[in-house]
Amino acid sequence: MKEKLSVITLNINMYNKNSKIKRNTDEVAKFLLAENPSLISLQEFGNRSFNGDINGINLIRILENNNYTIVEPYIDGKNPVNVRLLFDKTKIELVERLPPLYSKFFVNRQIGGLFKTLGGIPLIVFSIHLPLYERNPKEKRQMWENIISFAKVKQNKSIIIAGDFNENSLNNNPTILSDKIEELSNYFKPASEKEIPTWRNKKLDHIFVNPELIVEKYKTLENTVSDHKALTLNFNLEV
């Protein structure tokens, strides 16, 4: 028997002071709920966007009214560049909030949870948002080393790492650490089969899963609520 679940990940662009996107909190919630995801991974989240078009507290309240429960980082930053992870409590149970993959830097940009499905299957999900290399080269290299070390360890669980990695290898315009995407792919498989840009002409957003997880369908979603495209993954877990 298979349990069918899904995840959506989106950088909701609350930190961009100069955003020209016309949106409001209800529109963001409607977009996230449209795919009926089992899990929601958000980046660039805060209580309020820089230009005031999204109220993060109200967004979470809307999602909670639709059966979602939030998992928050251990610490939030003062700017709206935090991550959030939400799960549909009618499909999944949170067993424990997991410590950051890298505990010294940018704890607000990473959150993970150990979940249990209705059939009792364990599932680990992380929502992450890596910083730009140009601003934090030492920290970002260490973050990547920790992520790859985590991926190397054989675990008897299905694992998903989703978010904005700020790494691109498309269009002959690679980021400095784009080779880390390839290195991580030696241990976790990229859920995407098509290399479609997610921000302008770059693919900065990714979903990685451990090889045991059964990928059913993957989509890159155009939207009118962010300057990033969203990614969705439908996957099956064997009961």
Rank of each mutant, 00 (worst) to 15 (best):
I70S: 00
T90S: 14
V81S: 09
R61E: 11
V81K: 13
K89A: 05
D76V: 08
L86W: 09
L101D: 06
N79L: 10
F87C: 12
V71F: 02
V95A: 05
G56I: 14
I60T: 11
N82E: 02
I57H: 02
N66C: 14
N79I: 07
D88V: 15
V81M: 06
L63R: 12
N79T: 14
I60V: 15
K89P: 00
I57E: 10
Y74V: 14
L98D: 06
G56K: 02
R61C: 00
V95G: 06
P100I: 05
G77Q: 04
L63T: 07
I57M: 04
G77M: 02
L101T: 13
G56A: 08
L59P: 10
F87Q: 01
Y74P: 00
I57Y: 05
N55R: 03
R61S: 14
N66E: 14
N67P: 06
I75P: 01
I60H: 01
V83N: 04
N79V: 09
D88Y: 14
P73V: 08
I62V: 15
L63W: 10
K89Y: 14
K91S: 03
E72I: 10
I60W: 01
N55D: 15
I92Q: 05
V81G: 00
E93Y: 11
N55V: 12
R97V: 15
I57S: 05
P80N: 07
